[in-house]
Amino acid sequence: MMASALADPKLLLFIAGLIAATFVLSTSRSKPGVEGTVAVLNSSLLFATVGLASAVWTWIIHNQLVIGDASEFCTSEGIVQCGSVIGDPRYNNLFGVPWGVVGALAFTALLFLVLSIRMDVHAKWSETYTNYSWYAGLAGVPFLIYLIGVEAFAVHHICPFCTISHLSLLGFLGSVWLLRERRENKNWY
């Protein structure tokens, strides 16, 4: 069951996105100056985009589950599956708003911040926006811990698409941490 869930082409696409973002991030360390900064920003953009797409995907699954049919989008058996997590009415929303929508809004904000910096790395506000990105990403961590806790201790299932969103946020934070490091080390440009 776990193997079938992980062999989902959509999931593999998201995983490929995460791997690409991580690869771009890892190559940035060897690049000096603005070239490296742009590479880190590209990585941040990729993480935010994958996070946005996976969050929207979980919203699609949520909508399917509400009408009682998600078989074409996500398996509903085994430990690794979406049905028991996204379909659980006790935990699948934040004050009535599906977590997928919450995640999509959050990643939209992060995407805007890093896209702005990426479009003008020398702008005066780029440092401020880097800090905004860092703190906005950190704000998502308590929610991430809560949702992982729900998966592990309440519903006892792991939703792979939710996990992609969680990893995207962590990857995003890692990339923004490197951005701040470049700024502090005078290695921004």
Binding site: L111, M119, A123, S126
Partner: peptide
Amino acid sequence: GKDEDVRVIALLATLGVV
């Protein structure tokens, strides 16, 4: 930095994607 404020363009691009 660039003369124009790219944040507006970034915002429009983000909203377009979303």
